[in-house]
């Protein structure tokens, strides 16, 4: 059970934060199809940052001395770098769709093509193979472990401690905190109201003195930062801090989560937990011991592993089929804003 919850959180949290990235862009009126590409780019820059800086004395010594506070700070720094790079990358989308009024679907698709191509091109030159790894592994650098808190090797905490602290990453909780803060920003502040108005009726917003272009830039840039961050967190917590030029369709799944969640943060949090469970089953059905009796029930069923891997996508389609009639997208999403049009 502990394993199931931990793994589910690990898959759900990147989904949640990237789905929120989608919400910020769409609420401002830009369809951000480039979430997948931005995640790939964020994962790459984050991993590259760790790879380049981990030999620095301050981090290497902290690792050697087991100074986990510094290492957690290092992890946060990596997340910050990935978020910044994601934000810069998304400027390509906002420039094309705000200033040049280009087709947002094509622009997003282009970014989805650019990111893996560029990342693989660079990884091959930097690392000589198709995977960019850090020196050592992610758990030894960044994972929260019982030993860090002065507990013995065999000592075990209670259920809550074992589930939510031991063998978890700080990144997970930072993302949850960010999710809450940014949802409040979007729904309870003046800035959030203005941003949302640009996605519903930009002409009316403009007539009230809101700069639609600026708001759309803000929405897309926040979106890019969150997607880049989500990409790095995904690579850190589920891919052992390796960048391979893909994130297994997580960006697109996040889009589905966003639509399923009806563009609302609370629904999105719930939706991403559901998807997290299925993704967790798909990824680790062979080692999933649900009730702790040592029997891997899912693996013992006569079902091909490919079927489990297919599940998250089938469920998405089915769920969308039931919810899409009620779903209400921001009214002006996908339409370039032209001041001359009323």
């Amino acid at each position: 059970m502990t394993f199931l919850i931990q793994q589910t959180l690990r898959y759900a949290v990147p989904l949640m934060i990237v789905a929120l990235a989608g919400v910020f862009a769409e609420r401002s009126g830009i369809i951000n199809l480039a979430l997948e590409g931005t995640m790939v780019f964020g994962a790459f820059t984050g991993v590259l940052f760790v790879r380049l800086t981990q030999a620095l004395p301050v981090f290497a010594q902290a690792k050697a001395a087991g100074n986990w506070v510094t290492l957690q700070g290092y992890e946060l720094l990596g997340m910050l770098v990935a978020a910044l790079c994601g934000a810069v990358f998304s400027l390509l989308l906002s420039f094309a769709s705000v200033n040049l009024k280009a087709d947002q679907t094509i622009g997003g698709t282009a970014l989805n093509l650019i990111a893996p191509a560029l990342v693989l091109f660079l990884i091959r030159i930097i690392a000589g193979q198709n995977t960019l790894l850090i020196d050592g592994d992610a758990p030894s650098w960044f994972m929260l472990k019982n030993s860090l808190f002065g507990m013995g090797r065999t000592e075990k905490g209670n259920f809550l401690w074992e589930t939510f602290v031991n063998k978890n990453y700080l990144a997970t909780y930072v993302c949850i905190l960010l999710f809450v803060v940014l949802s409040i920003l979007l729904y309870k502040t003046r800035f959030g109201l203005r941003l949302r108005s640009c996605g519903e009726n930009p002409q009316a917003a403009d007539s009230l003195g809101i700069n639609v272009y600026k708001m759309r830039y803000a929405g897309t840039t926040i979106s890019g930062a969150l997607a880049g961050l989500g990409g790095f967190v995904y690579a850190l917590t589920t891919a052992n801090c390796a960048s391979t030029g893909e994130v297994a369709g997580f960006g697109f799944l996040a889009l589905a989560v966003m639509i399923f969640g009806n563009w609302k943060p609370l629904n999105i949090a719930g939706a991403s937990l559901i998807f997290g469970v299925f993704k967790c089953i798909a990824a680790s059905y062979t080692s999933l011991d649900i009730n702790g009796d040592g029997v891997y029930w899912l693996a013992s069923l006569p079902i091909s592993g490919h079927i489990y891997r297919m599940l998250p996508y089938v469920i998405t389609l089915i769920v969308l089929a039931f919810t899409s009639k009620k779903s209400r997208a921001p009214k002006a999403e996908g339409q370039p804003y032209d001041k001359g049009q009323r």
Binding site: L92, A96, A102, D103, G107, A110, I114, L120, F121, R124
Partner: peptide, 20 residues
């Protein structure tokens, strides 16, 4: 010593510009 992904980069840039 380069690799084949440069072709993908070029294609992606072309798509980006064909968007506008």
């Amino acid at each position: 010593a380069y690799n084949e992904y440069i072709a993908d980069v070029i294609i992606a840039v072309i798509v980006y510009f064909s968007a506008f």
